Simulated scan of single mutants.
Amino acid sequence: MLCNTYLLEGVMSGRTLPLGQVAHIVGQSTDPRSPRGGDPLGKALRDEADNLMLLCAQQHLEIDAKAALDVFTVEWLRRVKQEHEDRVRHLTALGPERATTVVRMVGSVHGNAVELSRETAAEAVTADRRFPLYLESYTRHGVEIDLRHIPGEQAGAVWNAEAAAEASRHYYRQATAVIDDAVRNRLGPGIERETVQHVSVFGFARLPLLVYLGSRLDDTVPTDIYQRHRHEQSWAWPAESGPATEFAAHRVQAGPDGDEAVVVVNISGVITSHEIPRELSGLPHYEVRPVSAQAGPDILRCRASLRQLEETLRMFFARLEREAKSLRRLHVLPAIPLSAAVALGRAHHPQVHPQLVIYERLAGSYAPTLEVGQVPG
């Protein structure tokens, strides 16, 4: 109960085994050696369900250890038991249509990592009145895409921009292969069998990889994208409060009708015109930015704002499809939150829209590092 360990499966054998132990909150005996046995609870009530907890062996030993009895008091254990039972009642009251398959992608962002455990994701989806569906093929951890073991995440950080970009492209080739494998061999079969009806996405990685992940997710499956909120140190979306932030896409520079264009997505920050690489300066130039609000790292404070941004991006791609039929490659310079990067990838249709060339700030300037989708024929 305390550690949320699954108590019907052996970690080493993988076999179904009853590993839980029944523990008493107030000791079964009034003997001084019985943990918390001096409580005035009547002896006839000590074997009742209200006084029992199901624990793993290690935590059973810990709560009954003499040196820890001042921590694991009767009051503390009763409160934890009540909170756990309330959570179970909440989850079991949800119908099967509230199940969601959790997809977690964990990497480093220029050396910085973040805690994104199975429990963290479960708490966030539970707050949305859903429960995580951990199929057998997911080893009860959902679909985890772990990029932390891939060498080269920080490669080229102190080199010139060209060398840094080449090192990053090598890293991205390995990372996208890991993403492809997880989507194709783990998430995909569940979607085909219709055991996956809803997906919840949590991602902490470099922006181009989050865009790529979004592009690989099946757009026909309802999907919620989660955002890490810095102030609360939480992945749960806050309750909706106030109007959602609106966004718009504008053409800010005309150019010759050709097969390439540039879009700057200024959401969490602002990329100015002089930061756009010189080789792109003559191309048609678009910008996506907030309406009646300043770009900033906390602009996506509610889920509705993210939905507004995703809808704006879909409308932008539809506009290009109508008005720029010769466009084949779209150079994307993103200043966006992590959740928005996933939304950008989901809004892009690889068979219809121009190929996205995702840029990243490396060694003080923006360089192309990852291509999403194929160049249309």
Rank of each mutant, 00 (worst) to 15 (best):
C3F: 09
Y6L: 10
L8R: 12
E9K: 14
E9R: 14
G14E: 05
R15E: 14
P18R: 10
V26E: 02
S29Y: 05
G42N: 11
A44H: 15
L45Y: 11
E48Q: 13
E48V: 01
N51D: 08
L52Y: 01
L54V: 14
C56A: 04
K66R: 14
K66Y: 15
K66N: 12
A68F: 12
V71L: 08
V80A: 09
V80Q: 11
Q82M: 00
H84T: 14
D86A: 14
D86L: 12
D86K: 07
A99L: 07
T100R: 03
V103G: 03
R104H: 07
G107I: 03
V109K: 02
G111F: 03
N112Q: 12
L116H: 07
E119F: 06
T120D: 11
A121W: 03
R129F: 11
R130L: 11
P132L: 06
L133V: 01
L133T: 03
Y134Q: 09
Y138F: 12
V143A: 06
R148Y: 02
G152F: 12
A157D: 11
W159F: 11
N160H: 10
E162W: 00
S168A: 13
H170R: 13
Y172T: 02
Q174R: 14
A175G: 05
T176N: 10
A177W: 06
A177F: 06
I179W: 04
V183H: 04
G188T: 05
G190H: 06
H198F: 04
S200W: 01
V201N: 01
R206E: 13
L209H: 04
Y212V: 07
D219S: 12
D224F: 09
Y226P: 10
Q233N: 11
W235F: 14
W237K: 07
P238A: 09
P243S: 13
T245G: 03
V252G: 05
A254N: 09
G258K: 05
V262P: 05
V263Y: 06
V263I: 14
P277Q: 09
E279I: 09
L283K: 00
H285S: 05
E287A: 06
E287I: 06
V288R: 09
R289H: 01
P290V: 02
S292H: 14
A293W: 03
P297R: 11
R301A: 15
R307Y: 06
L309Q: 08
R314W: 01
R314V: 10
F316P: 04
F316M: 04
F317A: 01
A318R: 09
R319C: 06
E321Y: 02
E321P: 00
R322K: 13
R329T: 14
L330I: 02
V332S: 07
V332K: 05
I336L: 12
P337D: 02
P337F: 04
L338G: 14
V342N: 03
V342S: 05
L344N: 00
L344K: 01
R346D: 02
Q351N: 00
Q351A: 08
P354S: 04
L356T: 06
V357Y: 02
V357F: 02
Y359R: 07
R361L: 13
P368N: 07
P376N: 08
